[in-house]
Simulated assay, not measured.
Amino acid sequence: MISLAFVITCLLIIVAPGPSLAVMLTQSLRSGRAAGLATVAGNTMGLVVWATASAFGLTALVRTSEIAFVVLKVAGAVYLCWLGVQSLLRSRREPDRLADADQTAKRSPLASLRAGFTTNVTNPKAAVLYLALLPQFLPPDGNPLVDTFVLAAVQMALSASYYTLVVLAIGLARRVLSRPLVRRWMDRASGLVLVGLGIRMVTLSRAAL
């Protein structure tokens, strides 16, 4: 039932840069590998929500209801901009204050889990992904509910595996990336990217989905 075309399509969608990847990079650089992995777990939890909604046809609301679409994209845009502003403010801190803030963040992996989850569930493109992608690969003679969950499980496994590899790679390079000057510029860059993604999301139209 799981075709090579489905796997390749999922991989192409997963590796494309987006809000989830940006948040994972930010959390990993700021608080280390554990925070990055917690963000991956949160993102996967968000996919579980969309997979369940897709199986019961609820994701269609995002595409057919203007109110549901606007509420979702505005919430997602506000959250991304808030994360981006936090990164920009961090880039203005002195190195010792930045180190103290990072130590505090390390003690709260729940914040990274929440960041990954919130970013995913407030992204209308994640909803449409399950609405538009999974039905195309459902076998005509199968059980739609069961088959949807199977396809979703494969997509989530691929997503979690790829993002975990990204987090581990960042962990290997974090000694260099955590230098004060490098961190300052990385915070500025990630902050601008997150704010830019937030602005892009709030201007998103349903026709673009």
Rank of each mutant, 00 (worst) to 15 (best):
G36K: 06
G116R: 05
L129K: 06
L194M: 13
V71N: 06
A126L: 04
I2F: 10
V182F: 05
R175K: 10
D147I: 01
R183Q: 13
R206G: 00
G191W: 06
S20K: 01
R114I: 11
L209R: 10
L165E: 05
A101Q: 05
R188V: 07
L25M: 09
A75Q: 04
G57W: 05
L165N: 08
A22H: 05
R188Q: 03
S31N: 05
G171R: 02
T118P: 08
V176L: 13
V195E: 12
A160M: 12
V85M: 03
T39F: 03
Y130P: 11
A16I: 06
A115Q: 13
D187N: 03
L192N: 02
P139I: 06
G196E: 07
A173E: 02
M186Q: 06
A208E: 15
T9N: 13
G191P: 07
L80M: 12
A53L: 14
A99Q: 13
S178H: 11
S161C: 13
A101Y: 06
K73C: 02
A35S: 15
R175H: 05
V195C: 14
P124D: 08
G42W: 00
M156Y: 10
A75M: 12
Q103A: 15
D100G: 01
A208G: 04
R33K: 12
V62K: 03
V85I: 15
L209S: 01
L110S: 11
R175Y: 00
V70T: 15
G57C: 08
A111D: 04
P140W: 09
V62G: 02
L47Q: 12
R188I: 00
A5F: 11
I13T: 13
V7D: 13
L181S: 13
T44M: 15
P144N: 02
L21R: 07
Q103T: 12
V23I: 12
R93N: 05
S91L: 05
C10H: 09
G36S: 00
L29V: 03
D187H: 02
W82A: 14
W185P: 04
